[in-house]
């Protein structure tokens, strides 16, 4: 059988994930006056990262563009952990 990868990011339940650049991370942490570790987490073994949908490593911050019921669109961030 033909092995065709199912792109997880295209599933309707999965919002858009993208890795944040260093400067953007610094800006984010400064806006909320927090440390990286205070962000919500995403595991390195998470399918979105593991199946190479996005390229991320431990310590990276992933920006998630959520569809929000109340705001329409919302940004959220997760720190990649082991």
């Amino acid at each position: 059988m033909k092995k065709e990868k199912v792109p997880i990011l295209e599933h309707e339940l999965v919002p858009k994930h993208e890795v944040l650049g260093e400067e953007a991370v610094a800006e984010l942490l400064d806006t909320y006056k927090i440390k990286k570790e205070q962000l919500p987490k995403i595991k390195l073994s998470d399918p979105v990262i593991k199946e190479k949908e996005i390229k991320a490593d431990v310590g990276d911050v992933v920006r998630i563009r959520r569809e929000s019921r109340t705001a329409g669109k919302a940004l959220s961030y997760r720190l990649v952990i082991e």
């Binding site: 999965v14 994930h17 995403i42 399918p47």
Partner: peptide, 25 residues
Amino acid sequence: DFKRTTTNNIAEIAEVLGIEAARNA
């Protein structure tokens, strides 16, 4: 159409589609 296919088992969604999908679920 896998992209629109879901389950009521949240643990499965977390495993197959990731934490953000689980949150939505």
